[in-house]
Simulated scan of single mutants.
Amino acid sequence: MLSEDMHNSLPGVPAAAGPGGVAAAFLNALSAREFTKAQLLLAQDIQFRMLVPGRLMTDQGAHAAIRRFASWFGGADQFQVEASNAQEIEGRAVVTYRFRLHDVRGWLLLEQHLMLDVGTDGRIEAIDLLCSGFRPATVDESLHVHPYDAGDLGCADGLAQAFREQIQHIPIGDVLVVSARDPAAKEDLPSLARLMGHVVHSIKVLGDGRLLVNVERGR
Rank of each mutant, 00 (worst) to 15 (best):
W72F: 13
M115H: 05
M115N: 10
V52M: 07
G75S: 12
G21H: 06
F134Q: 03
G74K: 09
F69K: 00
L42V: 14
Q112M: 08
W107Y: 08
I127S: 03
A15W: 05
A17D: 09
R98W: 11
G122W: 01
E88S: 11
N28W: 09
V94C: 12
T96Q: 15
R135S: 07
G106F: 04
L30A: 04
H102P: 09
A83V: 06
A76D: 09
P19Q: 00
T36C: 07
F134R: 00
I127A: 09
D121S: 00
A17S: 15
V95W: 10
V94K: 08
Q78N: 10
G122S: 08
T36P: 10
V118E: 04
S132T: 05
R68H: 14
K37G: 00
A76C: 13
V81Q: 12
R92P: 09
R55K: 12
T96A: 11
R92G: 02
F99V: 14
P19I: 07
V95Y: 12
A38V: 00
W72R: 12
N28T: 10
D59N: 01
R92E: 08
H63V: 15
G122K: 04
D128T: 03
M57R: 10
F69W: 11
S31C: 03
T120Y: 01
L114M: 06
N85H: 06
D117F: 00
S71D: 02
E88F: 03
Q87H: 11
C131Y: 05
E90Q: 12
F134H: 00
G74I: 01
L30D: 02
M57V: 09
G106L: 06
P53G: 03
A38D: 01
L27I: 02
F73R: 05
F26P: 15
V22E: 15
F26M: 14
R105I: 01
D59I: 03
Q60V: 06
G91F: 01
Q60W: 02
G91M: 01
W72M: 14
Q112R: 15
F134Y: 04
K37V: 11
S84V: 05
M57C: 03
L51V: 15
R49D: 12
G75H: 09
N28V: 04
R105Y: 07
D128S: 09
R135T: 09
G122L: 00
R49Y: 02
G133Y: 05
C131D: 10
F35Y: 12
C131R: 05
E88C: 10
A17N: 11
F73W: 13
G119S: 06
L114I: 09
Q87M: 06
L41S: 00
Q80K: 04
D77Q: 13
R123A: 01
L42I: 07
A62E: 05
Q87D: 15
A86Q: 15
A17R: 13
L27Y: 13
V52L: 11
L30F: 04
A15E: 14
